[in-house]
Simulated scan of single mutants.
Amino acid sequence: MKGARKRNLIYADPLPITFSPIENRFAVTVLGIFGISPFRVLNPRCEGTFDPATRSVWITNRRDSVILWKCGFFGKGNLSRSEPSWLARQSRIGTATGRLTSEEVTAKRRAERKQFKLDRARAIAAAAAEAEAAFAEGRIIPAEETRPSIPSAATWKPSEFTRNIAVPSSERCQEAGDLGAELSDDMEHLQLTLAEAFFLAWALDCLTIYHPKRPEPMTLDEIWTAFQTAHLPLHLGSSLSQTHVLRPDNPFLINYVFLHHYRSLGWVVKSGVKFCVDYLLYKRGPVFHHAEFAMVLIPVYEDPDDAESSPFTISNVEPFTWQWLSTINRVNSQVQKTLVLCYVTIPALSRLSVAELSSPSCFERYVIREIIIRRFVPARMRD
């Protein structure tokens, strides 16, 4: 309960924009007469740099990274699995706390796996040599005698050296302490997807994005064009005009429509590539509980002719097979996630004007529909 209460305090704000009550009672009374909320908006004003090569926005400031992660779980640490905690993990490497970092755990597991393969290979080679000797002597070795000599993944135990490979010695503790003193700068940055960055910059107005080659911040029109241009194939980036770049089937627009829809409904949207899907939906965030829904984003063209003229390679546009659907459904049912097929209808290019495609006003033309897929298990669903 104590840990849960601490998480509730640390990750209490669902978005970077927070509201603070006005302490002046007279001002509260006057605002209440005119029907104005007695709260003032607190905007963190974070900053990031657009990186076209990785199609992301980098948050290098430690303060901004902490705010965007703790208030909505935006982005991902480029040196971490999720939360940007590289510096904290590096400071624990080599310390005698008894708690291993993820890097040390990985090194230990790899050493144990390598040792298991070597021990098993030696046991198989010894059993084969003994079988050849018994065959030459005309003896018969019972299977019960050879089976225990070959270790399996369930019966094999790591040696003392392998078990302690990630436990630091006194010399390694001293070296890690010296290294920690040198690592005063955080080498990790928070990496936002283009959809997350545009949501923070346009919908919440709490993120300022800078161009990588210019010191001044990018305008909303520049961000709108740059994020869509980043999804163009490299051989077409310089040959297409702005009219051809701004299309309703741009992958940036499709992914942003999905993220904005569910973020506005209170869900935390994270990548689902680990479970063979496009996105995962969390009720509160990854530090509280596992994701409940696994989302597959399926774009659907309102006008099929737009698909033939599209310069983009969009996934899940082609009809899927039942084998593909059964595979994804089985993977997510094993981890207790509900598979949802999210169909995003792309408006026809013929009924969109250039002015609509040049601004976020085109988002109201998209339509989202969801279909839940459940795996039928006869033994569990009789009741």
Results as ranks from 00 to 15, higher is better:
E182R: 15
Q191R: 10
G237D: 07
T229W: 09
P212Q: 06
Q228S: 05
P215A: 07
F293N: 05
E216F: 01
L280Q: 04
V268K: 09
F199R: 08
H231A: 04
L192V: 04
A197P: 03
H235F: 06
Q228P: 03
V287D: 15
T208R: 15
L240N: 07
F227K: 03
V257L: 06
A166N: 02
F293D: 04
P212C: 05
R284A: 09
I209D: 00
F288V: 14
W267G: 01
R172G: 00
E188G: 00
A226S: 15
I165C: 12
R247W: 08
G180E: 09
L246M: 13
H235G: 02
V287Y: 12
L236Y: 11
N255W: 05
E188D: 01
P251F: 03
F288Y: 14
M187R: 10
A176G: 12
E175H: 08
A230W: 03
L200F: 07
I223N: 01
Y256E: 10
C206Q: 01
H211G: 05
R172S: 09
W267Y: 14
A181R: 14
I223Q: 08
R247Y: 09
F258K: 07
E182I: 15
E175Q: 11
P217T: 07
S241R: 13
A226I: 04
R172D: 12
T229Y: 11
V245H: 08
F258W: 08
R284E: 10
P215L: 04
R263V: 06
A181M: 13
Y282H: 14
Y282R: 10
Q242H: 10
L265Q: 10
V269F: 03
H289F: 09
V287K: 15
F258H: 11
Y262N: 00
M187E: 12
P251W: 02
W224K: 03
R284G: 01
E292H: 15
L240M: 15
L265D: 02
L190N: 02
H211C: 14
T208P: 05
